[in-house]
Each structure stands twice: as C-alpha cells, then as structure tokens.
C-alpha cells in the first residue's frame, strides 16, 4: 500500500500546487525564541488540522464519493464466444478451420492457446487465470492477427456492407479514405468492438488509429508492387482491426 499512498500524496501535492495562487496568504508561524546556546526554547505552536471546507473559497465542494471498482478481465469463455460472434458466428472448430486456411501458419488450434488464455483445468485443479500476463497478451495478438486477417480477406472483397462481418462499410476504390471518411468507419468498428460510439472515446484515440492506418499504408508504399501479403488498403485496415481486438477496452469490462 506504501507505493499507492506515496503516489496519492504526490497527486494531492501537485493538485494543491496548481491551485496555490488562488489561496489567501496563511497566518505566519511565530519564530521560536532561542537561548544563548542556539537551542530552540519557545513553545512550538500546535497546528490544528483543518477541514477542506474551512479553506476560504472551498466552502462548497462537490466530492466524487462514488465507490469505484477495478475493471475485470472478460472471462475466457465470453471472450471466445465474442470472437465467434464478432467474426462470423461460426462454431469454434469451424472458425479454427477458417483461420488456419490453406496454410501460412496464421493459426494453430484453440487447444494450443487455452492455457495462455487462462482457461481453468478442473481435473488438474488449475484455477482460472483472472489476471493478464505477457503470455496472455501474446495469445491475444496471435488470435487477433488471424481473426483480422481473415476478416479483411472476406470483407474487403466486393460485397454489400450488409454481408460483411467486421468491416461493415464500403471503401473508396483506388484511393485512401479521407479523414472524415475514416472517422465514420472508425465509429462502426468502435461500436463493434467496444460497444459504444467513438464520439465518447478519448479525443486522441481517433487520430491514433488514423495514424496507424496511414503508417501501415506508407510502409506498403515502400515495398515492390508484387510483394507478398496484403496490399496497402488491406494491410492498413488489418492493422486497425488488430488494434481494436488487442485493446484493453476490448478485454476488460
């Protein structure tokens, strides 16, 4: 608890510092008398702690007293079902087949990731892992890349948006999306993965995702035209998808 106490003290101190200019000058502490030898002899005034409301200008303060709860990790069963639902409504084995595709080592089997995802093993008395660790995040990435790549392959082909699973929008042909076009499409994905509109997200989120998209396209631009893998459009939207499916807000609730 010591670290948090120290941090809170730090926060409080800085917070007080920010508002210091508005506070009235405090009553100065009397200078203690000293004897010939230099030792302090006068009585040290006793400081009585004041309540916040006694500080001039702070008579009426709204206090955020609502109890707070720490975010929870989405249970692995709900996470797996969400993967199935968000990426096409297939069963686990059907989705596994689709993700493995015809090669490329994009995906192994669900069994290979269960331990890293924290699935309990009741027979072996291995409990559910309700905290993240680096290996779990590595599993989120491995799975997320496979899911997003397959979604890009299917959705970014020419088909009506209503038939698309993840990228439920059209993309302009032969050019990159404008900022405004990206924003509307970003909102569709934000609702899909996080369950709320992008307008309610932190303001820096949209520009970050947009930059991610632009940078991925720019990396492709430096490669030969016939380089293997996704083209600029597909790569950039795959990368955006990776960011959503690996985001803390996706895995916490």
């Amino acid at each position: 608890m010591a670290r948090r106490a120290a941090a809170l003290a730090l926060v409080t101190a800085l917070g007080c510092t920010q508002g210091a200019a508005d506070e009235p000058t405090p009553t100065p502490t009397p200078t203690p008398s000293q004897d010939a030898g230099g030792a302090v002899t006068a009585d040290v005034p006793v400081l009585r702690p004041r309540t916040v409301q006694e500080i001039p200008g702070h008579e009426s303060i709204a206090q955020d007293t609502a109890p707070k709860e720490a975010p929870r990790l989405v249970p692995v069963e709900a996470l797996m079902r969400s993967y199935m639902t968000l990426f096409g409504g297939l069963s686990p084995l059907q989705l596994q087949t689709r993700l493995r595709g015809s090669g490329g080592n994009l995906f192994d089997t669900w069994n290979d990731y269960l331990s890293a995802l924290g699935v309990p093993d009741y027979a072996a008395d291995i409990p559910r892992n309700e905290q993240t660790n680096a290996l779990m995040l590595a599993a989120f990435e491995r799975i997320g890349v496979a899911l997003c790549d397959r979604a890009v392959e299917s959705d970014l082909a020419a088909m009506p948006p209503t038939q698309k699973v993840v990228f439920r929008f059209d993309l302009p042909a032969n050019r990159a999306v404008t900022d405004a076009e990206f924003a509307t499409r970003f909102d569709v994905l934000h609702r899909l993965f996080f369950g709320y509109p992008a307008s309610l997200a932190p303001p820096e989120r949209l520009p970050r995702f947009r930059q991610l998209l632009r940078d991925a396209a720019a990396r492709r631009a430096t490669q030969p035209a016939n380089a293997p893998g996704f083209n600029a459009t597909r790569a950039s939207w795959a990368v955006v998808c990776y960011a959503f499916v690996r985001h803390p807000e996706f895995h916490l609730y």
Partner: peptide
C-alpha cells in the same frame, strides 16, 4: 446521448448474461 458508462454497463450485462459482447444490432 447516453453516457459512456451506460454503454459500458450494457456491455457488462451482455458479457455476464449472454456470455459474449453485444453485437452492433444489440447496441
């Protein structure tokens, strides 16, 4: 406009009661 907390609350309910995150249609 609902608050972000309302949306996140709905998401929590979906995860706990439906065993998955809500779909865009449900949102």
């Amino acid at each position: 406009v609902p608050t972000r907390e309302a949306y996140r609350f709905f998401r929590s309910l979906s995860i706990d009661l439906q065993g998955r995150m809500p779909t865009p249609e449900e949102v």
